[in-house]
């Protein structure tokens, strides 16, 4: 499922790779150093990849649609991995410094690929919850739901004079409503939360009379709503937090590359 605007970039990327691979081979044939060709290409690619972050800060000026930048970023990222292998000629270099550089490069690549995959997969799951909630508002939404649940619990206790629901809330449900739960299940598309609500969450229902059941069902309904919000939290959180790895690692790789470039120029060329 390749988006149409990515296609030209894929063609361009393949062409670039073919050109660089061919040229580095020619240089190698002439006993030049093909690593210079591939290395500088890789460095330029890294800079261009890094510029995507800059682009996001420059929304106020027309510097190309971000979607084009992303398409470029994805293709150039894959190209960079290929270029990296072309450059090192191996999966794993020998020098300690290069090993650190390679390890970070691989981490950036892996986080990037991971990010791309979740960004393609998770929005669908969020849409299918049927609700839409802004990430920053999730704590407030949970707080609101918790307030409502606690209000219902109090009201139930006052109206019926029985604290069964309240006891259940304190003993069991509170854990669920306190904060987002079952994050991993939400991310992988499981229904652990629903299962929990139907199981331990509903355990007290058989001890309730009809009035209490009315309140209790409202609470469970709010629990179901919270499950959907939890799903939003889990997925949106992951869609944001992978960047906590990707971006700092990227800047590290770029800085290490600069030093690498400097050393190569001073020591080996």
């Amino acid at each position: 499922m390749i988006r149409p605007m990515t296609l030209p970039f894929i063609v361009l990327g393949l062409a670039t790779f073919a050109l660089v691979a061919w040229y580095s081979r020619v240089v190698g044939m002439q006993l030049g150093n093909p690593a210079i060709v591939t290395g500088y290409t890789l460095f330029v690619l890294m800079i261009l990849l890094g510029l995507f972050n800059m682009r996001k800060r420059l929304s106020m000026v027309p510097v190309g649609r971000s979607s084009l930048w992303l398409a470029f970023h994805v293709v150039a990222g894959v190209l960079a991995i290929a270029m990296f292998w072309l450059h090192t000629g191996a999966l794993w270099p020998t020098g300690l410094y290069e090993q650190v550089l390679a390890a970070l490069f691989y981490l950036v690549s892996i986080t990037g690929i991971f990010g791309y995959l979740i960004l393609r997969a998770l929005p669908r799951r969020l849409t299918q919850t049927g609700i839409e909630v802004i990430y920053e508002r999730i704590p407030a939404e949970l707080g609101e739901i918790r307030d409502k649940v606690e209000a219902l619990t109090l009201e139930c206790t006052e109206k019926t004079g029985s604290d069964t629901v309240a006891q259940h809330y304190i003993g069991t449900l509170n854990w669920f409503f306190r904060r987002p739960r079952f994050g991993f299940s939400h991310i992988v598309g499981g229904d652990a939360a629903g299962h929990w609500l139907r199981g331990p969450g509903s355990a007290a229902r058989r001890y309730l009379n009809d009035v209490e059941k009315g309140y209790f069902d409202q609470i469970l309904e709010l629990g179901t709503l919270k499950t959907q919000i939890d799903r939003h939290y889990a997925c949106q959180d992951l869609m944001k937090k992978w960047l906590l790895l990707h971006v700092p690692l990227s800047i590290s790789v770029i800085l290490l590359s600069v030093w690498h470039l400097l050393l190569v120029n001073v020591y080996a060329l």
Binding site: K56, R65, S66, S67, P123
Partner: peptide
């Protein structure tokens, strides 16, 4: 519109 990386 320009800023949307996913053309969404």
């Amino acid at each position: 519109v320009r800023a949307c990386p996913h053309d969404a």
